[in-house]
Design a protein around this nucleic acid. Sequence first.
DNA 1: GGCCTGATTGTTGAG
DNA 2: CTCAACAATCAGGCC
Length: 125
Amino acid sequence: MKTRSSAAAPAPARSVPAPARRATTKPRAKKKPLKDDRNKPKKPPTAFFYFLEDFRKTYQQENPDVKSMRDIGKACGEKWKTMSFEEKVAYYDIATEKRAEFERAMAEYIKRKESGDFSEESDYE
DNA sequence: GGCCTGATTGTTGAG
DNA sequence: CTCAACAATCAGGCC
């Protein structure tokens, strides 16, 4: 139980020497989630996203004029940094639980990947 | 009319 | 060890 007890462990010493933002468009398949989940577990929302859910509601209440998440994201990020570690821990804890589940799904995904080939069987659909 | 981008940080997987 | 891409959201912008 100590593996991740300290949920709050945001690897701080990881400077990212790659400030080069993704050009202009991100090669992200945003169209539709198709069924890639069948073999590729999608990453769970991070603590930041959970905080966003709560912050987003509050932000819109006080800022009904706000546009979309782009503005909120900035405000959220700024606030996130100002938040106390203990407060963030609350969200980290939630994300940690989700990661545990995701980690299990990923373990199976990898296991399946190494175990056998993926013959896109595909029968359904 | 329909599809894509943009911004936030964190997290994880692969090389 | 290190990078890189992705996770939600949502409204606006473009052709």
